[in-house]
Amino acid sequence: MLTLERVTGGYSTGKPAIHDISFSVQSGEIVGLIGLNGAGKSTILKHVLGFLQPSSGTIAFSTDQPLLAYVPEMPELYEELTLWEHLQFMAKAYGLEEQQFQERAKRLLELFRLDKRAHHFPGSFSKGMRQKVMILCAFLVKPDVLVVDEPFVGLDPLATETLLNQLTEIKQEGTAILLSTHVLSLAETYVDRFVIVHGGNMSLHGTLEQMRQQAGLPDATLEQLFLAAVRG
């Protein structure tokens, strides 16, 4: 569904932040981007989303007009739209049928326990609740490609569990998910393949088993592999 081939880029052409990044995300798969702060994870995501242009390499989608959804690390909401209006806005933008929208929206609001706040403005929401709104908007449209940047930050354990269940559900429905996270224990359980980024380069990539072989650590956990990769 999504393929990156030898992508080099960053915020200025003279100083690339990422170098030769190549990986793919298939439909019905979760690929985890893992790295230290400043390793280049968010930069890769911004290139995938089209917010940044690579100086070399290609980013390709298997369909011409894929539906993309993005959950940023810092929730960015329209302060002048209520939670319900945010969902309605997304439904209009993606051309969802009214009945389909009503069903999905109500289910998601209940799942994330936001049904009582549906007609509130986000000004009164906590960071976790704002994050939930972003997640709800992304799940509402059932995108072809879902890009999620540090989704677990600020979420309570119940919301984290719901999010993981929802990620699994839309994955099974065929969505390609690119997930950036620091929570390695969750990533180890829910992510199918990994890309460990260090200093803007790919250190290890593939399934857990493939990465163990690449690192020469046959019994290593994801955390051990990650630490080995970043410590060189």
């Binding site: 989303l49 089209g50 917010f51 007009q65 539906l67 993309l68 959804a69 993005y70 940023p72 960015e76 909401l77 329209y78 997304m90 933008a93 993606y94 051309g95 972003m134």
Partner: peptide, 10 residues
């Protein structure tokens, strides 16, 4: 607008 609006088919 929030940057994510660029992803919407508008």
């Amino acid at each position: 607008h929030p940057p994510s609006i660029r992803l919407l088919p508008i």
